[in-house]
C-alpha cells in the first residue's frame, strides 16, 4: 500500500470503480478478452464500498471527490481484498479523518489476526505503538534497534535520532 495515494496509489481523475482495480487490471475477472468487463468491475467496486463503508457509496464518482479517509479506504479495500500474505503499508492514516483512522487500524489488526504478515511504516509513533507487535527503528538507512510496543516514546525518539542506536551498534 503506497504512502502517496494522490500520485501513486490512486488516479484521482478516474471513477472509483476504475481505481479499485488499479494494478490488478490483468485479472481475468475484470476482463472479456482484451475488453474491460465493466459490469464485473462495477459490481466488484460496489462490493468493496459496502464492506469498507466507503462514502459516498457511488462507484461511478470521480475519485478526487472522495474525502482523504475514503480515498485511503479505496486503496485499503483494493489491496486487502486480494488476500495477500504479506502487506506493506506506508503512512496509512496521513491526512485521514478520525473515524477512518479507527476503521483502517481495525482492519490492519484483523489482517494480523488472520495470521498475515503486516509491515507498517509510519511517522506517527502513537499509531506504531498501538498496532505493532515489534518495532524496528531506522536511522540513516539502517535498522538501529528493536523494541516492544510498550517502549516509551522517549526511548523510540532517541533511537530515531541515532543516539541509542550508535551505542548498540558499537557493542
Amino acid at each position: 500500500m503506497p504512502e502517496d495515494r494522490h500520485h501513486v496509489g490512486l488516479v484521482l481523475k478516474f471513477e472509483e470503480s476504475e481505481n479499485s482495480i488499479l494494478g490488478y487490471h490483468h485479472d481475468k475477472r475484470y476482463l472479456n478478452g482484451v475488453f474491460l468487463n465493466i459490469e464485473a468491475i462495477r459490481a466488484d467496486a460496489e462490493d468493496k464500498i459496502q464492506k469498507y463503508d466507503i462514502r459516498p457509496p457511488n462507484a461511478r464518482l470521480r475519485t478526487a471527490n472522495f474525502s482523504g479517509g475514503n480515498q485511503q479506504k479505496i486503496v485499503l479495500a483494493r489491496e486487502m481484498e486480494r488476500g495477500p500474505d504479506v502487506l506493506i503499508i506506508g503512512q496509512p492514516t496521513r491526512g485521514v479523518d478520525v473515524g477512518a483512522i479507527e476503521f483502517i487500524h481495525k482492519r490492519i489488526i484483523e489482517m494480523r489476526d488472520q495470521g498475515k504478515a503486516v509491515l507498517l511504516v509510519s511517522v506517527e509513533l502513537d499509531e506504531i505503538r498501538a498496532l505493532s507487535d515489534r518495532i524496528l527503528v531506522m536511522f540513516a538507512g539502517r535498522i538501529v534497534g528493536e523494541r516492544d510496543p510498550d517502549a516509551t516514546e522517549g526511548e523510540l525518539g532517541l533511537l530515531m535520532a541515532g543516539v541509542e542506536g550508535r551505542k548498540e551498534a558499537a557493542e
Binding site: V11, F14, H25, V34, F35, L36
Partner: peptide, 20 residues
C-alpha cells in the same frame, strides 16, 4: 472499454500510478 485503454488513461493521468 479495453485493458489497453485503461492502461493508457492511467499513464496519461498519473505516470507514477501507472508504474505502481
Amino acid at each position: 472499454r479495453t485493458k489497453l485503454g485503461y492502461e493508457m488513461r492511467t499513464m496519461g493521468h498519473s505516470p507514477s500510478a501507472a508504474r505502481y
